[in-house]
Design a protein around this nucleic acid. Structure first.
Length: 336
DNA sequence: AAGCGATCCAACCGCCCCCCA
DNA sequence: GTGGGGGGCGGTTGGATCGCT
């Protein structure tokens, strides 16, 4: 029997129903899940809503420089294998990466009047944009390293999302004035970061770097993300809904976190992780030596690195993420 | 302030593969 | 072996928002 199925945007009530159901019964078997939860949605719709939006470890906000670099690199290897690429960017969804690629990269290819699949364009990516990214990442980190202590977390890029569950994530990731140590500690999955250091950064786009290759993906990503298994409770304040200015102080987010962790995952891909919240910070964990094609770790521990770079980096990646794509003239010259 | 094109991104679609009865 | 359901994946759409004139 064909029951009337809802389509289009999810309501807060539907979200809540899905979240509660998954918290109690786990995910998977999406069609029966949709039925049993009383959602008038297809299983696919539920799956997508959960994986791309509601699951607690989904990471929102602008794509960082490091993430851009990784996306370019991985895409050059695997093409449009979005889910495969997403596996190497914790908290990012294939959908998000795909959207990023289409809106930024493909748009730029169009501006340059060349095919996104052409060798020309791929060379431009590898030999111009990627070194350019590396430079910017290094510049951001160099500036960040000069920043000193006692930093509290301030809003980086204001989220355009207003949904209560997004606010939940965003509040916990960057928008709360929590001490850094708390932010770090409520993570029990990943604190990911990276720092590419080209051998000769001031001429990274010059001929010296043209032949340089990045290390194999496994090397790259193994070094990108390091685990932090030190969960600690904290408290936060959540907006009640998008149309209201009222807020409510809930149980700590880590309780919520544990709540989600109760639900076992039954999927088999990169979405396997149900529990956990990513607290990623894009800075200064690992240094990539392009000449030796190897990585090395900085001596600082993760808290120090995080503290030292937080403020600066927030500023930098807002300003510089867009600049990557704004040198059309230079790119044109390169193409010729 | 209004109109309008550009941009973003959540959600959907269709195809395909895998697994199990 | 095979048919059907579940689910993964890449491509596309459409509504909301942005930003420029």
């Amino acid at each position: 029997m064909m029951m009337d199925l809802r389509r289009g945007p999810w309501t807060v009530e539907e979200d809540r129903t899905l979240i509660n159901y998954i918290a109690n019964h786990g995910e998977g078997r999406w069609n029966s899940l949709a039925r049993c939860a009383g959602l008038k949605r297809t299983g696919k719709s539920c799956r997508l809503r959960w994986l791309n939006y509601l699951r607690p470890d989904v990471r929102r906000g602008n794509i960082t420089l490091e993430e851009q670099l990784l996306i370019l690199e991985l895409h050059s290897r695997w093409g449009n294998r979005w889910s495969k690429i997403a596996q190497h960017l914790p908290g990012r969804t294939d959908n998000e990466i795909k959207n990023y690629w289409r809106t930024r990269v493909q748009k730029h290819a169009k501006q340059l009047k060349c095919d996104v699949n052409s060798k020309q364009f791929k060379d431009t990516m590898r030999y111009l944009w990627m070194p350019r990214l590396v430079e910017r990442i290094q510049a951001a980190n160099t500036a960040a390293a000069t920043t000193t202590a006692n930093i509290t977390v301030s809003a980086g890029a204001p989220s355009t999302h207003h949904h209560q569950f997004n606010n939940f994530h965003n509040n916990n990731m960057i928008n709360n004035n929590l001490p850094i140590s708390n932010i770090i500690n409520i993570s029990n999955d990943f604190v990911g970061s990276a720092n590419y250091t080209p051998e000769n950064s001031s001429t990274a786009a010059s001929s010296d770097s043209f032949g340089a290759q990045f290390s194999p993906v496994s090397d790259l990503t193994d070094h990108y993300f390091t685990a932090n298994n030190n969960p600690t409770a904290t408290t936060t304040t959540l907006p009640v809904n998008n149309n209201s200015n009222t807020t409510t102080t809930t149980t700590n987010p880590h309780d919520h976190h544990q709540y989600f962790q109760a639900a076992p995952s039954t999927t088999h891909d990169h979405h396997q992780q149900v529990g956990g919240t990513y607290y990623y910070h894009p800075s200064m964990s690992t240094t990539y030596d392009q000449n030796n094609m190897s990585f090395s770790h900085e001596g600082l521990n993760i808290d120090d690195r995080f503290q030292a770079s937080m403020d600066q980096n927030n500023q930098y990646w807002i300003e510089e993420v867009d600049n990557l794509w704004n040198n059309v003239d230079q790119d044109m010259w390169f193409l010729q």
